Amino acid sequence: MRIPPFHHDKSWQRFFVGVILGMLIGWLFFLYNFGYVHEKLVMEINKQKSTVENHEKTIDILQKDQDEQNKENQQKLTVQTIKINFTNEKEVNLSELTLFELKEDVESELELVKNKSIETVYSSKELLLKAVRNKIFVIGDKRYQLEVEQLTLYTTLELELSIHAAE
């Protein structure tokens, strides 16, 4: 059995050349369209990546701002410091050391209210006042009793006290 010699026939030569040229043109068309679509998709993905990165940065900034505001609000809603003022320190005529020791004793007595919520401290303010009024502070060999004249409660607990000699 013999294979017919198609390469000598002009019609078959034109057919094979047409098939080869069709394959080349189809392949070039495929490459062009694939490259065009691929380039569009890469550009779209890059735009989406930049948008996502911008949104993530915005989210991080907003979360940091919210965390800072929460911390500030947390600090604002708690008693941070205790300030003691004596209204009659000139009339009593005590030394600076005695006044300092009295302040330190009162602050140590009220140390429990630091970093407590203002609401909690406000609800127990009568106990605070009684704790300061009923306590006799011994400094050196002298005894002193304090009377609360004014109480200011915010992030700073401020007490206006008058000093009296205890009996």
Score class of each variant (00 low, 15 high):
1 M>C: 12
2 R>K: 12
2 R>Q: 08
3 I>Q: 10
3 I>S: 07
4 P>K: 07
5 P>S: 10
5 P>T: 09
5 P>F: 12
5 P>K: 14
7 H>V: 13
10 K>Y: 06
10 K>T: 15
12 W>H: 11
17 V>R: 11
18 G>F: 07
19 V>E: 11
19 V>G: 07
20 I>S: 15
23 M>E: 07
24 L>W: 12
25 I>R: 00
28 L>C: 01
29 F>E: 02
31 L>A: 10
31 L>D: 07
32 Y>E: 09
32 Y>K: 09
33 N>H: 09
34 F>K: 06
35 G>W: 01
36 Y>I: 03
40 K>H: 10
42 V>W: 00
46 N>R: 10
47 K>N: 02
48 Q>C: 00
48 Q>M: 09
49 K>F: 03
51 T>A: 06
51 T>G: 05
51 T>V: 05
53 E>R: 06
54 N>W: 00
54 N>G: 09
55 H>F: 14
55 H>Y: 14
55 H>Q: 11
55 H>K: 12
56 E>W: 11
56 E>I: 08
56 E>S: 06
58 T>C: 08
60 D>L: 10
60 D>P: 00
61 I>R: 04
61 I>K: 04
61 I>M: 04
62 L>M: 13
63 Q>T: 14
64 K>V: 04
64 K>Q: 13
68 E>A: 14
68 E>H: 09
70 N>E: 12
72 E>L: 15
74 Q>G: 11
74 Q>A: 11
77 L>V: 00
79 V>Q: 04
79 V>D: 06
82 I>W: 08
82 I>C: 11
86 F>R: 04
89 E>C: 01
93 N>Y: 08
97 L>I: 03
98 T>G: 04
99 L>H: 04
99 L>W: 03
100 F>C: 00
100 F>M: 07
101 E>W: 00
102 L>T: 12
103 K>F: 03
103 K>W: 02
103 K>S: 13
104 E>C: 05
106 V>H: 05
107 E>A: 00
108 S>Y: 00
109 E>C: 01
110 L>I: 01
110 L>E: 03
111 E>H: 06
111 E>V: 02
112 L>P: 00
112 L>R: 10
113 V>H: 08
113 V>S: 05
114 K>Q: 08
115 N>K: 13
115 N>E: 15
117 S>R: 12
118 I>A: 02
120 T>F: 15
120 T>M: 15
122 Y>G: 15
122 Y>M: 14
124 S>F: 10
124 S>N: 13
124 S>K: 13
124 S>C: 02
124 S>L: 14
125 K>A: 05
125 K>P: 00
127 L>Y: 10
131 A>M: 03
131 A>H: 01
132 V>S: 02
132 V>Q: 02
135 K>Y: 03
135 K>D: 03
135 K>N: 13
139 I>W: 06
139 I>K: 12
140 G>Q: 09
141 D>M: 08
143 R>W: 05
145 Q>M: 10
147 E>L: 13
148 V>L: 05
150 Q>F: 04
154 Y>F: 05
155 T>N: 15
155 T>W: 08
156 T>A: 11
159 L>E: 08
159 L>W: 07
162 S>K: 14
164 H>S: 07
166 A>C: 06
166 A>T: 13
167 E>Q: 11
167 E>F: 08
